[in-house]
Nucleic acid binder design. Sequence first.
DNA 1: TGAAAATTTTGACATCGCGTCAATAATTGA
DNA 2: TCAATTATTGACGCGATGTCAAAATTTTCA
Lengths: 246, 246
Amino acid sequence: MVELSRKQREMERRTQEILRVAKPILVREGFHALSMDRVAAAMEYAKGTIYNHFPHKEEIVLALAIESMALRRKLFHAAAALDAPNRVRLMAIGCACEFYTQHCSEDFAIEQWIRNVNVWDKSSAARQDLIRRCEGECVSIVSSVVHSGVASGELVLNQALTAEEFVFGFWAITFGSQILTASSPSLAAVGILDPRRAIRIHCCTLLNGYRWQPIMETDEYLTRVDELSTSIQSEFDRVRVEHYTA
Amino acid sequence: MVELSRKQREMERRTQEILRVAKPILVREGFHALSMDRVAAAMEYAKGTIYNHFPHKEEIVLALAIESMALRRKLFHAAAALDAPNRVRLMAIGCACEFYTQHCSEDFAIEQWIRNVNVWDKSSAARQDLIRRCEGECVSIVSSVVHSGVASGELVLNQALTAEEFVFGFWAITFGSQILTASSPSLAAVGILDPRRAIRIHCCTLLNGYRWQPIMETDEYLTRVDELSTSIQSEFDRVRVEHYTA
DNA sequence: TGAAAATTTTGACATCGCGTCAATAATTGA
DNA sequence: TCAATTATTGACGCGATGTCAAAATTTTCA
């Protein structure tokens, strides 16, 4: 029915509005500051109405995380779609990770909330499923590049690792370095001043260690990543803007 | 004065008792469940008395994290003290990380709380300093092994990376994989069934990529890490038990 | 159209946790 | 012994959560 559909659209529109109100509170003032009362006040609705959309604030957080992860997936997709050698496409996905952390820092911060047990356990199976699927798709995008590399003979994966386990290494080092950079109290004090550069070098060395062709020297790699990062920036920007305006 | 000192000792004893009560609540039921009222009730003191020891629960969490990180440092120290080639000592530190995550899982979980901005920002500069120092010491232990490797000629670090930046790569990949393993919803679904093994392989490849001598093949490395892990287990256990009984 | 039925919104309410602080209890010093 | 000092207590104000009966609004259908 048209009427029902209109109501559903209105409902959906307000759900989105709740998320728009909640996001800056969560990002700028933290989970604690995000209260149903406050969201309701900001929207000029009663608290009960907000509870009609989300059973608790954890569900709001997961809904926000789903949007954030969708943006990540789009960036990964754009990077993998590059018309370039497979190793370069993998580098481009690395650039996507860097772009996401730096220029979509709110989304990066929101994404981390899904790792909080309290948030995760309290939220609905439906949203948990969406998260799982999106994360799986991100891994798939990367592993498809790895599969291409194997298919084209640029990379030989002996029986020791599957493509997904190969990806896991880069996932871990990228994710780990970004979390540590964002949250480690002693990083600068200990002499790690440019963690991004360090990790780029490690990724290059790891790829060389697996003999992914063409082998690149550190300096060459750093230069190429810089160029790649610059050249792909506008495409990433386009994806981001489109994501936010949609 | 003896009297004053006795009082101080009693105060200190009770501070410890608070931590002993708080730890299982935090670990098993989460930050939210850890309330001052509950700690007070469990200890049969009034809430105000607990507030004489800690100004808020975040400070309790940081105090617990300091203990947990001290245990990590001891394990790192034990691993680095091994009478073995430098590359093997580095492997042993990797084993220490694995041991810590698996067999000191409560401490591993507590450690992560320091990365929560709300917890971190709320806590005292004194405890923040202790955390920073301990983390710095952990990095130092690892980088001293790297320095040994460089000094003995087993590893050539060109001007691209400092020893600390070198360490950062292994820190990131180890930390990242352990967080992902503990909290990533899609890991198993995506086909990463033995993340620890995958990361061991990645670390081996990375070390080989940097040509840290002696170069090891994957299979040889996996076997040696298994042996090493088994042989060093009892030492780690000793360190852990001593830490808990102290 | 209009009135009954269904749906949505509202905000008061019970409950719980935080952090404070004046009152109370315990300890110390002389 | 008693005044002074120090430590403990728990009631209190505040703010957040999640619920639910009452009120308001929308839909249905004669």
